[in-house]
Design a protein around this nucleic acid. Structure first.
Lengths: 328, 328
DNA sequence: TTGTAAGCGTTATCAC
DNA sequence: GTGATAACGCTTACAA
């Protein structure tokens, strides 16, 4: 491996001079700079980031800890974070916690050991309690899920309004017996249930059901089957993420319930398949690109100025009306 | 940050002794070991991996460079690699190249700079040519796409047989005018087209069409529209990945072509949505868990013994027959 | 069995 | 403007 020493020797200067030329942070005679740059080019030299981060006590890596790498929402975020970080010369270590608090701690330790500059993180609710011990040792930005303690930067959706709008859309289209399926591992599900309830109240209605369950396909399926078998069957279902939606849809298929006439259906997040099923699903699309980019920017700001006061950015979703929510 | 020096001081020994206790690679007096471990526990010391990798000239990170993080196939691989690597105490840097040779080179350089122990990589065909210059500087395992030069470990699907089986399934179910849509960026698409052709030959048939296009939803859509408008319209379509399938399905919807009666449909890779659309899609499922795990094991073997002769592991897919390929 | 010290590739400090 | 040199945290000859 070619090091700064090789370049220094080739250019007939000291390693310090090479470093200065590359960092461009000190006055250098034009001719010296030229010689150094030639040597760099000739030897195809690239600085060793490990050594640099050891010396600098910081690195150009950030961590992205998500709860499910197979959830399209999080891969979209990952893509956005990667792009934004890359523009700043940072690379992204993506980790998958599977909604498991033990894995969350494991990976956060790992990233700390790896000396990452900071972490973008979507925590489970269980983890929130022990979180304070971490946010002092490295910069954090929380995404998707509000943290109970407010001492951290966050990028969130206006979940209450988004769920309100989605619910009102159902109500405006004549549905009256609404059921909601919400994730039980994060604050997100709770907030979305609030918007759901609020919209119903505005119409002087009560929900047929509001269930908090693990945000998995299987649980979405089971809960939907139960709703269909209940004496007070809903005429529309709202789900708080795309995995629950997939399960709900599977259940409706199995029970041969027609959407949107027998059952209206709305959910969160754009997916590949949401427009391919029949009818296509009406969703509240989250601005994943903007969430990822904003979180990354916030993280860089905190890295630069660790003592700045924490900032919470609230973004809005976009209602995409398709066929699953309008009776024919 | 607490360092090895702090531990040494607290235990009243030298840093070398602490290092030896932790590495467990030298005889240490039982009592000294005890004192050191106590100090480690008390100070909550964890070795700095950056420093360790600088000194050791190697790290416990591996890179995973995939062409599209949003393709369910690659996220499933990522999950498997992460699990397998984690069991060995390795972490995974996941990078996304977007089928872009420039980005491939960029990320490979990045990972090299980061001193990763090795890389698992799904390259574009364009990249194959310049690949030799890299495989000497760090261990590599290629997945999903065969490399032209054979000097590298690879984990591949038996694409020819898989496509043959998928095609034969269509033929066995009475479809005769088959069209194939294959990705144009990798060897995978080409191999799958061979199996496709071979099955047709066994039935003394020729394909209606075999197109090589960028493996994106949009291109799958456009190609399918063209097929539908052509004078020799096929009665079944095979796609070589799930993104092309998504595009094809969208086109069939827009043109109101009924599946499977007017058009049979088969493709590669299991997806969330493949079973939710109506009818569900018949696919050749790849053993993603096994691919990821095998690739990781192969990489560790090469890291340990860089001169061992390269090995290619060929795995088989599983045909999952659903409603999209059987006329009613 | 343990300590001393060199060195991994950088960059920052202090001389000149 | 430039060059020595120390230091980042760790491991490993070499000594003792």
């Amino acid at each position: 491996m070619t090091s700064i020493k090789d370049v220094a020797k080739a250019a007939g200067v000291s390693t310090a001079t090479v470093s200065r030329v590359l960092a461009n942070n000190a006055p250098i005679k034009a001719e010296t700079r030229k010689r150094v740059l030639e040597a760099v080019a000739k030897l195809n030299y690239r600085p060793n980031l490990i050594a640099r981060s050891l010396r600098a006590q910081k690195s150009t890596k950030i961590g992205l800890v998500v709860s499910d790498i197979r959830n399209p929402f999080f891969t979209a975020i990952g893509r956005a974070v990667e792009d934004a970080a890359y523009e700043q010369g940072y690379s992204v270590l993506m980790c998958n916690t599977d909604e498991n608090p033990e894995k969350e701690e494991l990976y956060l330790n790992l990233l700390y050991d790896e000396n990452v500059a900071g972490v973008i993180f979507s925590p489970t609710q269980q983890f929130s309690a022990s979180f304070n011990s971490y946010d002092t040792r490295m910069p954090f930005v929380i995404i998707d899920r509000a943290l109970e303690s407010k001492g951290t930067d966050m990028v969130l959706l206006d979940n209450v309004s988004a769920a309100y709008e989605l619910t009102k859309h159902l109500l405006d289209n004549g549905y009256r017996k609404l059921a909601g399926l919400f994730g039980d591992v994060s604050t997100t599900g709770q907030e979305r249930s609030l918007g759901f309830q609020k919209a119903l109240e505005d119409f002087q209605l009560k929900p047929v059901a509001a269930h908090f369950i693990p945000p998995r396909i299987q649980q979405g399926y089971d809960a939907t089957i139960a709703l269909l078998d209940s004496t007070n069957r809903p005429d529309a279902i709202l789900t708080s993420n795309s995995l629950l939606m997939a399960g709900a849809l599977q259940a409706l298929r199995d029970k041969k319930i027609s959407v949107p006439n027998e059952m209206g259906l709305v959910g969160f997040d754009e997916t590949t398949w949401g427009e391919l099923v029949d009818p296509p699903i009406t969703v509240m699309a989250q601005p994943t690109e903007e969430i990822g980019r904003t979180a990354t920017e916030l993280l860089f700001q905190r890295i630069q100025e660790p003592s700045r006061s924490p900032k919470t950015v609230i973004l809005n979703g976009t209602l995409l009306v398709k066929g699953s929510s309008k009776k024919k």
